[in-house]
Amino acid sequence: MHNTKIYIVLISIMFIWGINVSAIKLLVGAFMPVTMTAFRIFVAALTVLLTLIVLKQVRKPQSKEWLYIIVGAFFSVVGHHYFLSEGLDKTSAANGGLILGLGPLLTAILSMILLKRKPTSIRLLGFLLGGTGVSFTVLAGGGGLNAASIGDIEVFLSILSQALSFIVIKKASETMDPRLLTGYMLLIGSVVLFLISLWREPGGLTSLANGTPLIWTVFLFSAMLATALGHMVYNYAIGQIGAAEASIFLNLNTFFSLLGASLFLGEKLMPAHFAGLLLIIPGVILGSGALEELALRRKRKRYQHHPSYKKT
């Protein structure tokens, strides 16, 4: 898939993930959070694996690939989702949103250290712009920062787990289809989360009986579209364009989640939210490498039309 098409698909996935924030808010209000998350991810895993079975893309992982799957499941599913649910329960939305906004920059730093990939100055500027835009957007609705708490540390551990998982996925994609990797990670992660829910939420399974038809429709949207399709496509993009480049699109989540909250939960959008978006968009364009790719393409086109250019 051409990079431009990948960028368009990633923006679409960010929109779905942004709407999914409102969906999860509704689900958490109806079910116990860890139990619901385990069940949601399990349904997502089945959706991914059944899709790949139909496409005849399922195979048994090699021994080295199992290591990537287990480590990826621990970081991407268990660590990220567990610490996020725990942390946001103990800190403010402003603090949590700002810390989550560090994800792309954190991924870029880890890519430099672990993958030996140094971002260009243009891409680094994009990461900083995107992070600033996220901070501006979150603070617009959060009323400022509260004092640091244990919840802040847990949210940071959540985004650190996710950033580490992007590195694992990039390494694993050298030999394994990232879509298949996603299915295995979701399956293993959902089982571990379910075991944690039995410990943390003894009445979690009972809470699932309280769902209405509307809530279960929201659940299926979140599980099958946002989690299954979203992670399958996003992890594929990591394999194609890189962990740091794909992670910059996560900055769009903040605005799209606010848009979803306004549409579905009646929350108010402020002018400052749109001002933040004006920083996020150039941040994505610069940080993803889209601007550099466009410049390279134009340079190549000019070179091909030069009188001295000869086809070989």
Results as ranks from 00 to 15, higher is better:
Trp17Lys: 06
Arg300Gln: 14
Ser173Asp: 06
Thr107Ala: 11
Ser288Val: 03
Ala209Met: 12
Lys118Asp: 08
Leu125His: 02
Asp177Ile: 03
Gly79Lys: 10
Met1Val: 03
Thr312Leu: 13
Leu278Val: 07
Trp216Ala: 01
Arg59Leu: 07
Phe256Gln: 00
Lys5Glu: 05
Phe83His: 10
Gly101Thr: 00
Trp199Pro: 00
Lys171Gln: 11
Ala272Glu: 07
Arg59Ile: 10
Gly96Lys: 02
Lys118Trp: 14
Val21Gly: 00
Leu193Ser: 03
Ser149His: 02
Ile70Arg: 10
Thr206Tyr: 12
Met14Cys: 01
Thr35Ser: 03
Leu195Asp: 02
Leu110Arg: 12
Leu106Ala: 11
Leu286Glu: 06
Asn210Phe: 06
Leu88Asn: 12
Tyr309Ala: 09
Gly141Thr: 13
His231Met: 00
His273Tyr: 06
Lys310Met: 14
Ile19Gly: 04
Lys64Val: 15
Thr37Ala: 05
Ser173Glu: 09
Pro104Leu: 04
Gln240Met: 08
Phe75Glu: 08
Asp152Leu: 12
Ile13Cys: 05
Ala94Trp: 03
Leu10Phe: 00
Gly266Trp: 04
Ile11Tyr: 01
Ser92Thr: 11
Leu124Ser: 03
Leu269Arg: 02
Ala93Arg: 11
Leu181Ser: 14
Trp17Tyr: 06
Ser63Val: 13
Gly103Ser: 15
Asn20Ser: 13
Pro202Tyr: 08
Ile6Gly: 01
Phe74Trp: 15
Leu46Met: 12
Ile150Leu: 12
Gly29Ala: 09
Val34Tyr: 05
Gly18Pro: 00
Gln57Cys: 04
Phe249Ile: 02
Lys60Ile: 11
Asp152Trp: 12
Asn251Lys: 00
Thr212Leu: 05
Leu225Ala: 14
Leu291Ser: 07
Ser308Ala: 15
Ser161Tyr: 03
Gly283Tyr: 08
Thr217Glu: 05
Val43Asp: 11
Ile13Ala: 03
Asn210Thr: 11
Thr4Val: 07
Arg59Gly: 04
Ala38Glu: 05
Pro307Met: 14
Ile241Arg: 07
Thr175Ala: 05
Ile11Val: 13
Ala140Phe: 14
Leu294Asn: 03
Ser247Ile: 13
Ala246Thr: 15
His80Ser: 11
Thr254Asn: 04
Gly131Val: 10
Leu198Glu: 13
Ala237Phe: 05
Ile153Gly: 11
Asp89Gln: 15
Lys60Gly: 01
Gly130Arg: 07
Val168Asp: 08
Ile13Phe: 06
Ile53His: 01
Phe136Val: 13
Leu296Phe: 09
Gly87Leu: 15
Ala290Phe: 02
Val48Phe: 03
Asn146Pro: 06
Gly103Leu: 15
Ile6Phe: 01
Ala147His: 08
Tyr236Val: 04
Thr206Gly: 07
Gly101Lys: 09
Phe274Lys: 07
Gly131Ala: 02
Ala244Val: 04
Asn95Met: 02
Leu291Gln: 10
Phe42Trp: 14
Phe221Cys: 05
Lys64Gln: 14
